[in-house]
C-alpha cells in the first residue's frame, strides 16, 4: 500500500529530460543523481519532491536512452511509484531493477493532477483517486520477484547466495 502526493507530467517524458546526458557518464552516487532528477522538464521537482510522492504521467514514460540513472534518480529522490498508461521498455526494466514500482494504468491518469493524492494497493492492483478506483494488471511473477527483493542486484545476490 502506498499513499502519496502526485507530480503530474505529460506524454513521452524522455530519459534526457529526466536525467541529462551531460551527467550520464560522470560517476555519481544515487543521492547526487536525485539532485538532477527531471532537471530539464521540471527544474522545481528535485528541490521539493518528498519521500512517498508519486509520479503520474502520460503514455510512453521514459522513452529514449537506456541510461539507468533515469530510474535510479527518481528512486533516490523518494518517488514511491510511477503511474502511466505505458512505459518505454528499457525504462520499465530499469525501474523494476532499481526497485521502483511502475504501474501501467490504462485509464484514469488523465483525471489526476499535480498535488492530488492517490492511494495504490499493489496486492489488489488498484489505484484510488478521489472517489474513483482504477485497476491495473499484476506484474508477471518473474518480474515481481525482482521488485520484492528491492531490485535486480539484491535479487541476484539472493538467487546466487552471494548476499
Amino acid at each position: 500500500m502506498s499513499k502519496g502526493r502526485v507530480w503530474k507530467y505529460g506524454d513521452d517524458v524522455n530519459t534526457d529530460v529526466i536525467f541529462p546526458g551531460k551527467y550520464t557518464y560522470q560517476p555519481m552516487e544515487p543521492a547526487e543523481m536525485a539532485e538532477h532528477a527531471l532537471e530539464d522538464l521540471d527544474p522545481g521537482f528535485a528541490g521539493s519532491v518528498k519521500p512517498g510522492d508519486i509520479i503520474v504521467a502520460g503514455k510512453n514514460f521514459g522513452c529514449g536512452s537506456s541510461r539507468e540513472q533515469a530510474a535510479t534518480c527518481l528512486k533516490a529522490a523518494g518517488v514511491a511509484a510511477i503511474v502511466a498508461p505505458s512505459f518505454s521498455r528499457i525504462f520499465f526494466r530499469n525501474a523494476i531493477n532499481s526497485g521502483l514500482p511502475v504501474i501501467e494504468l490504462a485509464q484514469g491518469t488523465d483525471k489526476i493532477e499535480t498535488g492530488d493524492e492517490v492511494e495504490i494497493n499493489f496486492e489488489a492492483g488498484t489505484l484510488r483517486h478521489k472517489d474513483s478506483e482504477y485497476r491495473f494488471p499484476a506484474l508477471p511473477p518473474e518480474v515481481l520477484a525482482i521488485l520484492e527483493d528491492g531490485g535486480l542486484i539484491p535479487h541476484v545476490k539472493k538467487v546466487l547466495g552471494t548476499g
Partner: peptide
C-alpha cells in the same frame, strides 16, 4: 535490443537474462 546497466552487470556474473 538495449538493456540497462544493472542488467549488464548481472550478465557479467551469470550470462543469463529474462526477455518477454
Amino acid at each position: 535490443a538495449g538493456v540497462g546497466r544493472s542488467e549488464m552487470a548481472v550478465l557479467y556474473a551469470t550470462s543469463k537474462i529474462w526477455l518477454k
